[in-house]
Amino acid sequence: MRNFGYLRAASAAEAVQAGAAPQVQFLAGGTNLVDLLKYRVEQPAALLDINRLPYQHIEELPDQGLRLGALVTNAATAYDARVQTRYPLLSSAILAGASAQLRNAATNGGNLNQRTRCPYFYDVAAACNKRQPGSGCAAIGGHNRGLAILGTSESCIATFPSDMGVALRVLDAEVRLLGPAGERVVPMAEYHRLPGAEPWRDNNLLPGELVTAIDLPPAHFGQHYTYLKIRDRLSYAFALVSVAVGMRLDKAGHIQEARVALGGVAHKPWREPRAEAVLAGQLPTAEVFGAAADELLAGAVGQGENNFKLALARRAIVRACQQAAAGTPQSQSDKHIR
């Protein structure tokens, strides 16, 4: 790890101003950033420690939603009683990720901004457009078992690895930002980017912009939801494919509303309105879910080693929808898929 300067931001204003300088990075829990510093993937000149800024709480919003402070830890968020009862999907997704120790350190803002786990991104000797613009992409034609099947480009096939982010996408969360030019709010749908020709840009944050909170609008997925994460190892591993589902059923058992997002398959949590339209008004059957899965996966292409993700994702979507419809969400401690 190269040495760097260090400043503890005393105020948000100070943070966004100083953070706008090139080669300065925000330090939150450090579980991703410190790792990347050690591999010399990131070599900032200075870290700006934002841990003492006042984004440490979960607050009620007037519309029955919740505001998750950017510096609240993943663990505190997942175990918060309000989150557990009103947004169990989010709680479950967070608990599916990393380990207890890491969740105790990881913050909500850091989770949203964590970088890909593409092995070539981590290997400074390999070509990688995300790490070193213009150097090429070693993952294309290389080992890409964990990488993307949707929304890829010729310059990058990386995935956004967060579990929490997939649930936030389903919940239509909004990311609150504070930058040198003031505050703005970006819906989750528009927060992360596809790699396109600029794979080094993971998201649409502007220089110096700080995530201050994540707003959860009121949701009605307390009953019919699931976070199904499929991975090689039963814990402490990133998703090969994950599916977040939130549903509302009417008294007759028809799907009033369904939202489905995928993790581990693209550069951002993947959602497709056409897939959800297929589900609306239908009875929850495997056929309907399969049709929705086909919409969700429209245009998916394998990269060789990860071809299996097409079949796996389809099966996982159907299964997750069934779990949600039946009101038997995936447990993150009993690993049996229900």
Partner: peptide, 25 residues
Amino acid sequence: HGQCGACTVLLNGERRVSCLTLAVS
């Protein structure tokens, strides 16, 4: 690199991987 847990300590009573924890913070 935070991948094994061998370095776990209690920081203000909470378990953390000390290898990804910057002490200055």
